[in-house]
Amino acid sequence: MMIRTDGLSKAYGATAALDHVDLNVESGSVYGLVGPNGAGKTTLLGVLASLRAATGGSMQIGTDHIAVLPDTPHFDPWLSGREVVDLARTLGSSSTDPSRVDELLELSGIADAADRAVGGYSRGMLQRLGLAATLVGDPDLVLLDEPCSALDPLGRREVLDLIARLRGAATVVFSSHILADVQEVCDTVGILRQGSLIFEGPLQDLLVGSAVPRYLVRLRAPLDPVVAELRKVDWIQAVDIVDPEQIRVTAVSLDVAERHLVRALASADAPVVSLAPEAPSLEDVFLEVVR
C-alpha cells in the first residue's frame, strides 16, 4: 500500500475541508480523485504532499520520493523549459541521468520550445512542462492536480498516455473534473463530497454497482408498433425512442429484464438488429452519487 489515511481531517476554522478521510492507494495504481469544486481534492493532495498539515487523523505514505504537479504550474519566467526540468532533476535525484531531461521534454511535447524562456509559454505548455518536471526524477508517488485542465484535445491525449504508462512504475493520484479522463486511465476511484470520501474502490465496482436496468435496442423501422407493444408490458417502466433506429427500454430490475426482455421483444414481433445493456458513464454515476 502506497498511501493509507485513517480519519484524515483538515479544518480551516469551523470549516472542515477534509472530514475523516480513509484513503487507500495501492502501490503502482493510478488513482482518480473526483468531486465537485470545493470538495477538498486540492486540500487532500496538499496534505498528502505535506504542504498542509492535517488537523486530525493519521496518514502513512510508503515513500518520501514524492512529486507534485499543481493545476496551474508556475516557474521563474526567465528560465528556459530545459533549465526548469534540469533543476527538477538535480533537486529530485542528482543521480538521474541528464538525458532524462530531453527524454521527458520530448514525451511532454515541448521539446521544440525547450530553449525558450517559460515566461512566454501558454498555460497548456506550462502544464506539459510541469508534468516533465514532475516525472524527471522518477518519483515513486506522483500527485497530479487537474493535470489536463488547460490542454487541448491532442495535449490531453498525450498526457493521459503518459499517465497510463506510469502504471506499475509509480503510484499516481490525480484529481480531475474531466470524468472521461479518470474513466480512461484510473483503475481506482475516490469520490469526495464536502470533504468526505463517499466512495472508494475499483472503477468497475462503481460502474457495475450503479448499473441501471436500461437496455439499448437497435431495430429496423418502423419503431412505433414495437414501442406500443412494449409499453403494455407491466415490468417495463419506460420505452424511449433514441433515434429512428434505436429505443431505450427501462425495466423495473436488471433481473427481470435479463429473464424476459428478449421474450417481450419477440412477442412484439420486433426486428432486432442488436441489444445491449446501457453502460453507465462515470459522469452518470458521479452525478448520481454526489446528489
Binding site: 504532499a49 514524492i66 499543481p70 496551474t72 504550474p73 533537486l91
Partner: peptide
C-alpha cells in the same frame, strides 16, 4: 507564487 513554492518545497 505558491505554485513555485510547491515546485521547490516538494523537492528539497
Amino acid at each position: 507564487k505558491p505554485q513555485m513554492g510547491i515546485f521547490l518545497r516538494t523537492r528539497i
